[in-house]
């Protein structure tokens, strides 16, 4: 009962943040007018601004946060690593390489782009895990992080090579996108991201009990009837799919997957089904709030979304790192 009330409260906070994100901007709109405009009532200009610009932007931010939050929760549990998250593991970087390569080859539809990202992300996580194993196993969470950072650095270099012949404008766009942004949101992008987030989220919720078991370690997982190697492989692939879709839609938004699961655990959630669901909700709220900060911090300029989440995430990362040792 207490937990239900808590989560209703959290959902209300996320809703308020989303309405605030729609209300604030170059033309401020009152909260009532926002709700009227979403329903299609009121001043036609306001309706147009809300329905074609701000609402899809807020929806995209919510979806990016939900996807990254769930991917982070699943990765932390399955890897038994409190520092794991798509950006630090190089998964997002791999996804970015896939997306940039697809665009460079002239393919950028709503099907090709996320799939190209997914291919890059899956490859990146496989390489990061192999590098970690080669350098002394996954027992020390910091080894895997180091492997992820190496993979991320390689991904950056690959992107620079891919962009070396591109026109200056394309380079500028690509760099902006690599710092994460939901500014160019449209309903098409929000629509397909919603499909991927729903699909990936449902699969993770289905596997959530296996993640509970995996978080006990390989031998205990085997003792409880879970094939750790096979089960964690599927979880890594789903987390890679979720991260890849968010990268294809909004670029590299780091640290959300790191911070959000810890926030959910601090609310007393332990089992992964509730943890993943809570991470979707809190992740959504966190990214919509970060986008609000990105627009409000230095108007009329906008900060890159990824810069805002990194400014929040890096100190948090350091606190977690200290707790490990």
């Amino acid at each position: 009962m207490k937990a239900t009330l808590l989560w209703i409260g959290v959902a209300l906070v996320v809703l308020v943040l989303a309405i605030a994100a729609i209300a604030y901007g170059a033309v401020p709109i009152g909260a009532h007018a926002v709700i009227d405009a979403i329903a299609g009532r009121g001043d036609p200009v306001t309706v147009a601004i809300v329905r074609t610009l701000r609402l899809p932007r807020a929806v995209l931010a919510l979806l990016v946060g939900a996807g990254l939050g769930m991917a982070g929760a699943a990765l932390q549990g399955a890897l038994r690593n409190a520092l794991a998250e798509p950006y630090l593991l190089g998964v997002s970087g791999g996804a970015a390489v896939g997306a940039v390569a697809a665009v460079a080859l002239g393919a950028s539809g709503p099907f090709i782009l996320p799939l190209a990202s997914f291919a890059g992300a899956a490859l990146a996580i496989a390489v990061a895990l192999l590098v970690a194993r080669a350098s002394g196993g996954r027992a020390d969470p910091r080894v895997l992080l180091m492997a992820g950072v190496i993979v991320g650095a390689f991904a950056n270099a690959a992107i620079m090579v891919l962009l070396s012949n591109a026109p200056p404008n394309a380079v500028r766009n690509a760099l902006w996108w690599m710092m994460g942004s939901v500014a160019d949101a449209g309903w098409l992008t929000a629509g397909w991201l919603a499909v991927y987030v729903a699909l990936g989220g449902a699969l993770l919720l289905w596997l959530a009990r296996d993640i509970d078991i995996l978080s006990l370690g390989e031998e205990s997982a085997a003792a409880l009837g879970v094939d750790a190697a096979r089960s964690s492989r599927s979880i890594f692939l789903i987390a890679a799919l979720l991260s890849a879709a968010t990268v294809a839609a909004a670029g590299l938004v780091g640290f959300v997957g790191l911070v959000v699961p810890h926030l959910v655990r601090s609310l007393g959630v332990r089992r992964h089904r509730a943890l993943i669901a809570g991470a979707a909700l809190i992740g959504a709220g966190l990214v919509v709030a970060a986008d609000l900060v990105a627009r409000l911090a230095r108007p009329p300029a906008e900060l890159p979304l990824g810069a805002v989440t990194a400014l929040l995430g890096v100190p948090f990362f350091l606190v977690q790192l200290r707790r490990l040792s």
């Binding site: 549990g77 409190a82 969470p141 978080s215 370690g217 031998e219 205990s220 085997a222 009837g225 332990r270």
Partner: peptide, 15 residues
């Protein structure tokens, strides 16, 4: 796992 339970040598919980 329903027939035999194994308590392995070591186990530590991260969370």
């Amino acid at each position: 796992a329903r027939r035999a339970a194994v308590v392995s040598q070591r186990e530590s919980l991260v969370f």
